[in-house]
Amino acid sequence: MSDQEAPVTAPTPDPALRPVRGAARWAVAALALAALAWAARAVWHLRLAMAGQPASGPPDQGGGWHRPLTALEDSYHLVSSVGGAVTVLCALVFLAWLDRVRDNARALSGAEPRYGSLWLYLGWILPVVNLWIPRGVVADVHRSVFPDRRLPAVVNWWWALWLAGLAGGVGLMYTDSTDEVIARAYTAVLPLLAADAVIVAAAVTAALMIRTLTTAQQRRLDETAPTGRPGIVP
């Protein structure tokens, strides 16, 4: 071999693809639990409204003084706490699924996502930009792999319901304390029930969206595997 020959470099390996079915099942299960949790909140809102406010007034009496809770009000605190914990768990499992399908979309298309990895998390919590970036991240997953296909309508339905659940100060992002929500249930339960219904619908639609995008991406993965393109790793 001549000393002047250029060294042979190994080709850069293609990025590995990640399985998505398991993450999708977990995300759908978490969303089902979240829907049940918010449906339970709606039942308790209705129970409070039907029971009526006690003669002693709302739980928060003002001036930093709270009266003792009734048994129904105390049970609502438990339902609310469990619902909050389930919602946090659902968010984490959803993001784990989204991270997987996003990585696969990048590997399959060979193009960097429109939104960087940081937006996968910050996009949900930063004011104003949280009105469009999370939907953009999800839409990018589909369009990077299927640029010639229309975005599934279920994505837009999910996002519209999600935004409706954030609006009005009675849904996912209300800042009232649990005792203040109880007082609302006594005096104006309809907005609370409407918010509960929207959030349950958003959870159900999100589950349908996950199944739709996962099925489409899995078909592409199945088509890719026999061709010698990037393999699937755990």
Rank of each mutant, 00 (worst) to 15 (best):
R149Q: 09
Y186E: 03
A153M: 13
T175Q: 15
A216R: 11
A194I: 07
V138A: 09
G228A: 00
G136S: 10
A153C: 07
V137S: 12
A206N: 13
L213V: 13
D176P: 06
L166E: 14
V141S: 04
R184C: 12
V155D: 03
T224L: 00
V137K: 05
P152D: 05
W159S: 04
T205G: 10
L193V: 00
P152E: 02
R143F: 11
R220P: 06
R220G: 06
L221Y: 05
R150F: 11
L190I: 05
I199M: 12
R143Q: 15
D176R: 15
L163P: 08
G171D: 07
D140W: 01
V155S: 06
V154D: 02
L192Y: 09
A197Y: 08
M173A: 09
A207L: 05
A207E: 05
A167D: 13
A188E: 15
P226I: 00
R150H: 12
R150E: 14
D196I: 04
L161A: 11
P226L: 04
L213R: 01
A202L: 02
A139K: 14
D140Y: 06
D196R: 10
D148N: 13
Q217A: 00
I210N: 02
A203S: 14
P134E: 07
A167R: 13
L151M: 13
I133W: 10
L161S: 01
T212A: 11
P134Y: 10
L172Y: 11
L166Q: 15
P152L: 06
H142A: 00
T212S: 10
F146K: 06
Q217K: 00
L131P: 08
V141R: 01
A203Q: 07
V198W: 04
R184W: 15
R149G: 02
F146M: 10
L208P: 04
P226T: 03
Q217Y: 04
L172S: 14
V181Y: 01
Q218L: 12
T178H: 03
L131M: 11
N156V: 06
R211E: 15
V145K: 01
A188Y: 11
Q218H: 13
G169H: 09
D176V: 03
A188L: 14
T224W: 02
R211T: 15
P147Y: 06
P191F: 04
T215Y: 06
V204F: 04
R149W: 02
V170G: 02
V137E: 09
G171F: 02
L166T: 13
D222L: 09
R184V: 12
P226V: 01
G136W: 06
R149S: 14
A201D: 12
L163E: 07
V181R: 01
A194R: 05
L193K: 00
V137Y: 09
